[in-house]
Simulated assay, not measured.
Amino acid sequence: MSIQVQKSFESEKGKGKDSLTGKLFLVATPIGNLEDITYRAVRTLQEADIIAAEDTRQTRKLLSHFEISPKRLLSYHEHNKAASGPELIRLIIEGNDLALVSDAGLPAISDPGQDLVKLAVTEGIPVIPIPGANAALSALIVSGLPTDRFQFAGFLPRDKKIREQLLLSLRDFEGTVLLYESPHRIIKTLQHILDTCGDRNIAMARELTKRYEEVTRGLISECLSWLGEHPPLGEYCIAVEGAKPGEVQERGGLWWQPLTIDEHVNHYEQEEGLSRKEAMKKTAADRGVAKRDIYNALL
Rank of each mutant, 00 (worst) to 15 (best):
M1E: 10
I3E: 11
V5I: 15
S11L: 06
S11I: 00
S11D: 10
K13P: 11
K13N: 06
K15Q: 13
D18V: 01
T21I: 15
F25T: 01
V27Q: 12
P30H: 12
R43V: 00
T44P: 02
L45H: 09
Q46M: 12
E47G: 03
D49A: 13
A52Y: 05
T56L: 08
T59H: 09
R60E: 15
L63N: 11
H65L: 05
F66V: 13
F66K: 13
E67W: 00
I68V: 07
P70K: 05
L73M: 07
S75H: 11
S75T: 12
S75R: 13
Y76N: 07
E78D: 15
A82N: 14
A83M: 14
A83D: 13
E87I: 13
L91T: 02
N96K: 15
S102V: 06
G105W: 04
L106K: 09
L106Q: 06
P107W: 02
A108Y: 02
A108Q: 07
S110V: 02
D111F: 05
G113F: 07
D115W: 05
V117L: 01
K118N: 11
L119H: 06
L119C: 02
A120P: 08
V121Q: 07
E123C: 00
E123F: 03
I125K: 06
V127G: 04
P129L: 03
N134D: 02
L140S: 09
G144N: 10
D148N: 14
D148R: 13
Q151Y: 13
G154N: 04
F155D: 03
F155M: 02
L156P: 09
R158S: 15
D159H: 15
D159K: 15
K160V: 02
R163E: 02
S169C: 10
L170Y: 11
T176R: 02
T176N: 12
V177Q: 07
R185P: 08
I187G: 03
L190D: 03
Q191D: 14
H192E: 08
D195C: 01
M204R: 04
A205M: 08
T209V: 13
R211K: 15
R211V: 15
R211E: 13
E213A: 06
T216Y: 12
E222T: 04
L233E: 12
L233M: 12
I238M: 14
V240P: 06
G242D: 04
G242S: 09
G242M: 10
G252N: 14
L254W: 01
W255P: 00
W256D: 04
Q257F: 04
Q257C: 00
L259H: 08
L259M: 13
E263S: 12
Y268R: 01
E269N: 01
E272G: 00
L274W: 05
A279N: 06
T283F: 04
I294K: 00
Y295G: 06
A297H: 05
L299I: 04
